[in-house]
């Protein structure tokens, strides 16, 4: 059954027990993304790791359907503490996977490969991508603020 292909146990597990949910107090950038057709919402913060400026710490709070919630939980597992380049590659990969343009790569997406079944339901692709788009937006903003402060101190 197609439905079980989308709602794999691993997805339902992330949905019921999300990883890393809750907002960090200190952050360099915060974004709020919504899916206006169904009302799914996420607030996502990116903090530049004070010990290693290449690493981006992720925190988030969200509400929405199982797919959007599970996807955010997976994003946290995959991208928390990663560099922008690593994160951007993962975003590109999940987008391509949901367009059925690439075979899912577990090394890049971890449990995110279980979201592959979402590609059969075009209306749900937005749910799966909400947090990943929010991460990219926040990461770019966070790095932008860092660059500008660096420029000022230069």
């Amino acid at each position: 059954m197609k439905l079980e292909h989308m709602y794999q146990d691993i997805i339902l597990d992330h949905y019921k027990h999300p990883h890393g949910k809750g907002l960090a107090e200190d952050f360099n950038a915060e974004v709020h993304h919504v899916n206006p057709t169904c009302g799914d919402e996420i607030t996502l913060r990116v903090t530049i790791d004070p010990d290693d400026h290449k690493k981006l710490i992720v925190s988030y709070d969200n509400q929405g359907c199982s797919i959007s919630q599970a996807s955010a939980s997976i994003l946290f597992d995959q991208l928390n503490g990663k560099t922008f380049a690593e994160g951007e590659a993962a975003v590109d990969h999940i987008v391509a996977m949901l367009q059925r343009a690439v075979e899912p790569d577990e090394d890049i997406l971890g449990d995110g490969i279980a979201l592959e079944g979402v590609a059969q339901y075009p209306a749900r692709v937005k749910c799966a991508l909400l947090s990943w788009m929010a991460w990219k937006d926040a990461a770019i903003q966070a790095l932008g603020t860092e660059n500008s402060t660096q420029n000022e101190s230069n």
């Binding site: 059954m1 197609k2 439905l3 989308m6 709602y7 169904c38 799914d40 929405g64 359907c65 199982s66 797919i67 919630q69 339901y121 749900r124 749910c127």
Partner: peptide
Amino acid sequence: HPHDVGQILDEQGIAVRV
């Protein structure tokens, strides 16, 4: 979540709005 309710309904051929 309503989106998930709608998906299960859709699998049974039931078209609702969520």
